[in-house]
Design a protein around this nucleic acid. Structure first.
Length: 587
RNA sequence: CGGGGCGUAGCGUAGCUUGGUAGCGCGCUUGCUUGGGGUGCAAGAGGUCGUGAGUUCAAAUCUCACCGCCCCGACCA
C-alpha cells in the first residue's frame, strides 16, 4: 500500500470527547471515527488491525475443533421468551418493529439461535460433541456507552457454543476453549489472565473471564500473589473470619436512637456500637417484590451476588416509601427481627428454583459472615429505635444464607491466607459452562447409546473482538503513539523514504524494498507522501507500525538504510541486506 | 434514569460575566522557502456560533424548551 493512496486521517490533537488513552489513539491514528455515541466506523487501517485479531481468533478456534457459522443478528423475540431472557436480559436487548408491527430483537448473543439449531439438527450422540462459533456484529442497548470501543452499542464479538453428551465432555470442551483463549490473547500480544467470574444472568455452573490489567478497566479483580487465586470482585470470596460470638444478655432490648439513620452515626457516642456489631438491613425490589438482605454493618452488599441468587438483574433498592410498606419504617431504622415483621415469624424454606418468587412472601437473605452472630444491634422497624443484644439465629428467621458481601483489599485469601489485592482490568473474554438449562428449554436433546433422550450439556464462550483490539492499544503505547504487536499491526513495516522525487536513488530503493517485502508476504506500507521527515516519523510512530525502514540520502551515501523497530534502537544495515534484515526482525 | 459539564470551521479552542459586523493555533488551498524529527514566510478558502422559540433597535452572548456529546452514579450474556 502506498500511503498517498491510503486513507489514514491522523490527528495531531484528539477530539475532546475521547477520555482514555486508547480511545484517543484510535481516533488520532485514524483507525476509527464516531458516528454516534457507542457507534463507530472502522476506517481502513482500523479494519486491518481488527481483521488480524479476528484471524487469530479464527485460527485458534479452528485449531480447537470449533466450526464457524454465521447466525442472524435480527431475531424473533419468541425464542428469547422461551428461555426467559426476554425479561431477564430485557434491559440490554435492542427491540424494534418492522413495517407489519412485528417485533424483533437485535442479538447481543446467540444461545437461543444456536440451541434451536441443535434442537432441530442434532438427534444422536454420534453427532456430538460439537462446538459452533461465529464472529459477528452484536448489539447491546448500553444505557451509557463509553470509552470508544470498550463499551459500545454495536460491537464485534466472537461467540462459541459447545454441545456435549456428558458433563465430563462439557468440561473437556470448556478446557479446550480456556486453553484456546490463553493462546489467542497471547498471540494478540496481550497480557491477559483468567479469573473466576460471576455467571450473571446467562446462568450456568461456573465461568472464567480473561482480564487485561488496566487502570481504565471497568472490572475489579481480586487476586492473591501468593497462591494465584484470582476472581472478579463480583464473584470473589475471602477467608475473612465470621462475626465473633460473645457473652450477651438473655433477650433483645429496644432503645431509642432519635435521628440516627446510618451505621456510622450509631457507631459514635453516645451509642458507640461498632459497625462490625451492627446488622445492616437492606430492602431491594425484584420484580416488584421485596427481598430483605442482611449484612454486617462494616460490609458492602455485592449486587452481582444478589443477582445470581435471585436470578435476575432487574432489581433495585427499595424507595423509602416501599421500605415503610414492607417493614414499617424508613431506611435507617430497618431490621428483620422476627417479632417486628408483619405476618410474624412464619417464613417457609425456599425452593432454590424459585427464589425470586419467594420474595413475594418476604424472603430474608443473610450474609454468611453473620451466621452465629449474637449481641448485635439492628433497626427496630420503628423510626428512631434500634434493638441490641440481637442474636441472629434466635431472633431473626433467616430464609437462606449466602455469600453476599464484597471483598476488600487486604483480606486474607481463602486458599492460602495471604492478603488479597485488588486491581482494575478490562474483560476481553468470558467462558461459561452452561449445563443443560438452555438445551432443556429449547429441546436440544439427543439419543444416547442406550436410546435414552438427554439434553445436550452446553458451554458458551465469548470474546469481545473490538474491545480486544482497543485493549491492545491500551496496553501497548508510549508518548508517541500506538505500539502494535507484530501479530495485529495494520501493516508490519512502514518504508519511509525521506525524499520522494521519482527516479531518485532513495525512492527507487524504497520501491525495490517495498516490492521485495511484499513478495515475501510482509504487510508493508510505503510512505510516498511529499512530507518532511518529521511529519512522516511522527505519523508512523503515532500509528505504531512495528518496523520502520528509513531511507535517506545521508545513509544511502554509505550504502545503508535504517531499520527502526517501534520500540528499540535504530540500526543501520546494508541496502541490499535490508529485506533479509527486516524478515529476520519479524522473526 | 439521577447528578455534573460541554456544544463556536475538519481538530483543539477564545469570545459569553458586562448584547453591538466571530478570533486564534493546527489542518486545508496557492506561491516561495526548507529538506533527517510535526520548517519558515506570504496570500487564501472554510462558520445557519447544536436546533427552535422568546426578550431586544440589535443575541454566539440573556431566557425557555428540545437535541446531541462527555464525565460520575445506577446498569452491564
Amino acid at each position: 500500500m502506498l500511503w498517498s493512496q491510503a486513507f489514514i486521517p491522523t490527528l495531531r490533537e484528539a477530539p475532546a470527547d475521547a477520555e482514555i488513552l486508547s480511545h484517543k489513539l484510535l481516533l488520532r491514528a485514524g483507525l476509527i471515527r464516531k458516528l454516534a455515541g457507542g457507534v463507530y466506523t472502522f476506517l481502513p487501517l482500523g479494519l486491518r488491525a481488527l481483521r488480524k485479531v479476528e484471524q487469530i481468533i479464527r485460527e485458534e478456534m479452528d485449531r480447537a475443533g470449533a466450526l464457524e457459522l454465521l447466525m442472524p443478528a435480527l431475531q424473533p423475540p419468541e425464542i428469547w421468551q422461551q428461555t426467559g431472557r426476554y425479561e431477564t436480559a430485557g434491559n440490554v436487548l435492542f427491540k424494534l418493529k418492522d413495517s407489519g408491527n412485528r417485533e424483533w430483537v437485535l442479538s447481543p448473543t446467540a444461545e437461543e439461535v444456536i440451541t434451536t439449531i441443535a434442537a432441530n439438527e442434532i438427534n444422536s450422540y454420534r453427532q456430538l460433541p460439537k462446538n459452533f462459533y461465529q464472529i459477528s456484529v452484536k448489539f447491546r442497548d448500553e444505557i451509557r456507552p463509553r470509552f470508544g470501543l470498550m463499551r459500545a452499542k454495536e460491537f464485534i464479538m466472537k461467540d462459541a457454543y459447545s454441545f456435549d453428551t456428558t458433563d465430563d465432555g462439557a468440561m473437556a470442551s470448556y478446557k479446550k476453549m480456556y486453553d484456546a483463549y490463553a493462546r489467542i490473547f497471547a498471540r494478540c500480544g496481550l497480557k491477559a489472565f483468567p479469573v473466576e467470574a460471576d455467571t450473571g444472568v446467562i446462568g450456568g455452573k461456573f465461568s472464567h473471564e480473561f482480564m487485561v490489567p488496566a487502570e481504565t478497566g471497568e472490572n475489579e479483580v481480586v487476586y492473591c500473589e501468593a497462591c494465584g487465586y484470582a476472581a472478579n470482585i463480583e464473584k470473589a470470596t475471602s477467608g475473612i473470619p465470621k462475626t465473633a460470638a460473645r457473652e450477651a444478655g438473655a433477650a433483645i432490648e429496644k432503645f431509642a436512637t432519635p435521628g440516627i439513620v446510618t451505621i456510622e452515626a450509631l457507631s459514635k457516642a453516645p451509642y458507640s456500637v461498632p459497625a462490625n456489631r451492627q446488622i445492616k438491613t437492606l430492602v431491594y425490589m425484584a420484580d416488584s417484590k421485596p427481598v430483605i438482605i442482611l449484612i454486617r454493618g462494616d460490609d458492602q452488599l455485592n449486587e452481582a451476588k444478589l443477582a445470581g441468587i435471585i436470578g435476575t438483574t432487574v432489581f433495585r433498592p427499595a424507595t423509602p416509601e416501599e421500605c415503610v410498606a414492607t417493614l414499617g419504617a424508613k431506611p435507617g431504622s430497618l431490621g428483620a427481627v422476627a417479632a417486628t415483621l408483619k405476618g410474624g415469624t412464619g417464613f417457609q424454606p425456599v425452593n432454590p428454583e424459585h427464589r425470586l418468587e419467594a420474595c413475594a412472601t418476604l424472603a430474608i437473605y443473610a450474609d454468611e459472615r453473620l451466621r452465629g452472630a449474637n449481641d448485635m444491634t439492628t433497626g427496630a422497624n420503628e423510626d428512631g429505635f434500634h434493638f441490641k443484644i440481637v442474636s441472629i439465629e434466635r431472633d431473626i428467621k433467616v430464609t437462606e444464607w449466602f455469600d453476599l458481601r464484597t471483598v476488600t483489599a487486604g483480606e486474607p485469601c481463602a486458599k492460602c491466607g495471604k492478603p488479597l489485592k485488588i486491581r482494575r482490568a478490562i474483560e476481553v473474554g468470558h467462558v461459561f459452562k452452561l449445563g443443560t438449562e438452555y438445551s432443556e428449554k429449547l429441546g436440544a436433546t439427543f439419543l444416547d447409546e442406550a436410546g435414552t433422550r438427554k439434553p445436550a450439556v452446553m458451554g458458551c464462550y465469548g470474546i469481545g473482538v473490538t474491545r480486544t483490539m482497543q485493549a491492545v492499544i491500551e496496553q501497548c503505547n508510549d508518548k508517541d503513539g500506538i505500539i502494535w504487536p507484530l501479530s495485529v499491526a495494520p501493516y508490519t513495516v512502514c518504508i519511509t523514504p525521506l525524499g520522494v522525487a521519482p527516479e531518485s536513488a532513495v525512492m527507487k530503493l524504497a520501491e525495490k524494498i517495498y516490492v521485495e517485502l511484499t513478495a515475501r508476504g510482509v504487510d508493508v506500507i510505503l510512505d510516498d507522501r511529499d512530507e518532511r521527515p518529521g511529519v512522516k516519523f511522527k505519523d508512523s510512530e503515532l500509528v505504531g507500525f512495528p518496523i520502520r525502514v528509513g531511507i535517506g540520502e545521508k545513509s544511502l551515501a554509505k550504502g545503508e538504510v535504517e531499520l527502526k523497530p517501534r520500540v528499540g534502537a535504530l540500526q543501520a544495515v546494508k541496502a541490499d541486506e535490508a529485506v533479509d534484515a527486516v524478515i529476520k526482525l519479524l522473526g
